[in-house]
Simulated assay, not measured.
Amino acid sequence: MIGPYVNGAALVVGSVAGALIGPRLNANVRLKMPMVFGCAAMGLGVVMVIKVKFLAPVVLALVLGSLIGELIQLERLIQKAAGSARRLVEKVAAPVDGISQEEFLDKFVALLMLFSMSTTGIYGAMTEGMTGDPTLLIVKAILDLFTAPIFASTMGIAVAVLVVPQFVIQAGLYLGATLILPLTTPDMLADFSACGGLIMLATGFRICGIKQFPVASMIPALLLVMPLSWVWATFLG
């Protein structure tokens, strides 16, 4: 297992570097680069969405998954954990100036999706688990290495905490890939990518401050989309 370690290391190094150079980083760079990364997330989302095979189960998964997420208040739970992470980190590091608690929590949830639950990371971990090829996760690590410092420059070292859910998710998928991938079809993977693309598109809007989509509440859709895609292909496709 190489990819999850490389990706995790890149996130930690980038976050630490961003927290250290933050006060000296040009204000325009700190304010405007997140919009660039948000735009990139939206572009990646569009590219992933166009791979869709059966649109109906993807939309159904997104609606049902978001409904489940809202009913269990998933985003609120994640925000609560983010607030705890910030307080814990600030006990051993200087508090972050110039960013409100509300803004911090909003960005933290969006970054959770960007770093830990993007389809690139999920599919990359599954691919390495089946084939031993960590290329996709290494590419993601390179992107995270340059993305993390920008956000850490305003949010502080707390961004590095995201390495925990990122590694747990990627390592779990890596270890479970031999059980998951044999049960999938190319159409199911295409619809999974499309569902992840819609969530990435919403994440991009949120990072850019255009619209506060409930991206954390959409997470259960990733668990529903492949079974729904199979049902649709088997009985209605």
Rank of each mutant, 00 (worst) to 15 (best):
E70Q: 13
L67A: 15
A81P: 06
V109C: 05
L77Y: 03
Q79S: 15
L64Q: 03
S66T: 15
R86G: 01
V92Q: 02
V52L: 08
M48Q: 12
G83S: 08
R86A: 10
L71C: 04
P57Q: 04
E102I: 05
K91Y: 10
V47T: 13
P57M: 01
V89W: 00
K51T: 10
G83H: 06
K107S: 13
K51R: 14
V92W: 11
I50H: 08
S66V: 06
G98A: 09
L62S: 10
E90G: 07
L67R: 02
V49K: 06
F108Q: 00
L67C: 08
A56W: 04
K80Y: 10
K53S: 13
R87L: 13
K107T: 10
V96S: 15
A61V: 00
G83C: 10
P57G: 04
P57D: 06
V47E: 14
F104M: 05
L74P: 04
V89D: 00
A82Q: 07
I50Q: 01
A94K: 15
K51Y: 15
M48G: 03
K91W: 10
L62H: 11
L67E: 04
R87V: 05
I72G: 00
L60N: 03
V52I: 15
L60Y: 08
V49G: 04
P95Y: 05
V92H: 11
V96K: 14
I99S: 12
A82M: 14
